[in-house]
């Protein structure tokens, strides 16, 4: 099999997840997009491991071991992330990451959304929500 097929599919899946992380407002949808990005990385790891195990006689199977570790860490991540989202929803009544801007810098007094400060604010909130 041509190595470009899994590599290109992995790239496209990663960019789909990237779009989802940047464009979604619900924190759970952002977590789903993060899962898509992690799966793209997993596909890359598996494809290169299968290639190298034959082409370079690599017997450690590091790619597949790392894939298993990534899957386990992703399961832990989604558990913690959902616990944080549920705690935020319980305290604030919302899981909209555009509205969680207590740590956002800037002078905008929590007004309606404009694009420029929303980018910095949502990045911080996303890091908080998905950490």
């Amino acid at each position: 099999m041509h190595l470009a097929y899994p590599a290109v599919l992995s790239v496209l899946l990663f960019c789909t997840g990237l779009y989802g992380v940047l464009a979604r407002r619900n924190a759970i949808l952002v977590l789903m997009s993060v899962e898509l990005m992690l799966n793209a990385v997993n596909l890359n790891l598996v494809a290169f491991d299968v290639w190298l195990s034959k082409a370079a006689e690599e017997t450690l199977h590091s790619g597949q071991a790392l894939t298993l570790f990534t899957i386990a860490i992703a399961a832990a991540e989604i558990g913690i992330g959902l616990a944080i989202v549920l705690a935020v929803h319980r305290n604030r009544g919302t899981s909209d990451i555009d509205k969680l801007r207590d740590t956002a810098e800037g002078h905008e007094p929590d007004g309606p959304d404009t694009d420029a400060p929303a980018a910095a604010g949502t990045a911080a909130e996303k890091a908080e929500a998905t950490a």
Binding site: L18, Y19, L22, A23, R24, R25, D98, A119, T122
Partner: peptide
């Protein structure tokens, strides 16, 4: 309101 306001910026980046 599932999508944020910076949707087109996200499309561009992706």
């Amino acid at each position: 309101d599932a999508d944020s306001g910076n949707r087109w910026a996200a499309v561009t980046v992706a």
